[in-house]
Nucleic acid binder design. Sequence first.
DNA 1: ATGACGGATCTAATCCGA
Length: 266
Amino acid sequence: MRFSITTWNINSVRLRLPIVEQFLVREKPDILCLQEIKCRAEEFPLEPLQAMGYEHIVLHGQKGYHGVAIISKVPLSEDHRQDYCKVGDARHISAIFERGGRRIRLHNFYVPAGGDEPDRAINPKFGHKLDFVEEMKALKADMPGVSSILVGDLNIAPLEHDVWSHKQMLKIVSHTPVETEGLTEVMAKGGWLDLMRQHVPASEKLYTWWSYRAKDWEAANKGRRLDHIWSSPELGPLLENIEVLKEARGWNRPSDHVPVTATFRM
DNA sequence: ATGACGGATCTAATCCGA
């Protein structure tokens, strides 16, 4: 039996419902985690997604900005929303599902982008991002009786080949040493596995985001791996595949992020 | 690394993304 989970920063779920439906019809993941839904809970398009068999939906909505949702074919329970940095942003939701005799808590994150200037003394958004990452260090993958999966737009490309040019990106927010070291520490302290890099060697370029601002995103190919799928160690051996659906960047009215799907044997 | 794009909102021009 296979089980698949997708993460996708959708940049407005209401505007992009047609491509969400297209994706679900084609790829049929068991669970889809969305970030930047950019709507209140009451504005979320529940009915069309439930009509497609995704009957179990939990979300953390917010007017106009941020917002995360878990859209699932399998029942979800014990949903929880954590207010990281206590600023009232909708940047996290988690819930438990059961599969193959396991209980698994799935966390869906939208980490702050951090603005332009990588200096917290002059850019409060960068400070917010660093504080958010600091708070994530307390999140443990290993919990008694429960496995863990963490997905989302973490807005940090941690490895050299997660960006098109390591050298030219070192002072650019998303790839500065204070961010990449922070994210590495979140993984180490929490005991998380990077499933994307378990499947694709760290020596290969791997991107999930291409800027809207390039004239030709595909020709320029100046991407970054900002979206991630992590798990607790015992799920590592169950990973069968990682698919980064690059073609979705070329769909009609695309998000600047593409869907990333992990498939497990369980 | 600089693009100069794209979304939501006081439906106009501004903030935000990364």
